[in-house]
Amino acid sequence: MSTKPETITNAKQNSPDYFYEFIKGIIKENPTLVGLLGMCPTLAVTATVKGSLGMGLSTMFVLICSNLLISLIKNLIPKSVRLPAYIVIIAGFVTIVKLVLARFLPPVSELLGVYLDLITVNCIILGRAEMFASKNKPLASVLDGAGMGIGFTLALFLMGTLREIIGAGSWFGLDIPFITNPVTLIARPAGGFFTLGIIIALVGVITNKKPKMEAGCANCPSKDNCPTAEKGEDK
């Protein structure tokens, strides 16, 4: 585990490499910027850095807990009802996060509002449950959840930083003195789409990879059990 490239090639050959499971979600398979999942919170709460971090960390907590629980009880859940079971487990953890935030960090809880509840239907969490936690051991699942959570948080943090500095002339609520005319549009809904579009294009250039043509079905975590996947649109 001395150099990074070695680790990655090892991991490709054989599965249980914990370091790789952890590190892959941060940049290489970043759920938001590379996997194009979880778009709704990425656009909705990133007008400020505070909201971005609150959403990122809450999602990370839910992701780690649900990955752990699902990989522990994966053999007890009948295959046919596994998706509803996963969703209920996730919703339970979301409720915990919501109650804890409402008690200890009321400003963040108010800022995130209904989007805190909507972590339940974040495709990243259900996607990792279905693709990773239901097939792997608890420790690997926790590391996978932590890595993906950090990747998601970083992406949101980047969005939030850009949008708050350009759109409001401040960072984490602190005014930046030399920005006198912030472009308020960037902090509005339109700016969310715009900033995310630019960031995804940049990530595509930096990683030298052709950007994916599609969101939706192509990357959807549940496409294997979804009768709509691809077929629906081509009809």
Binding site: P189, A190, G191, F193, G197, I198, I200, A201, L202, P211
Partner: peptide, 22 residues
């Protein structure tokens, strides 16, 4: 431009549409 093909151009187009809805 190549970098904007696919999702990035779609998102930028959506941004312009949102400005219309504003």
């Amino acid at each position: 431009p190549d970098a904007f093909k696919g999702i990035p151009s779609t998102l930028v187009a959506a941004a312009i549409m949102v400005i219309g809805f504003m």
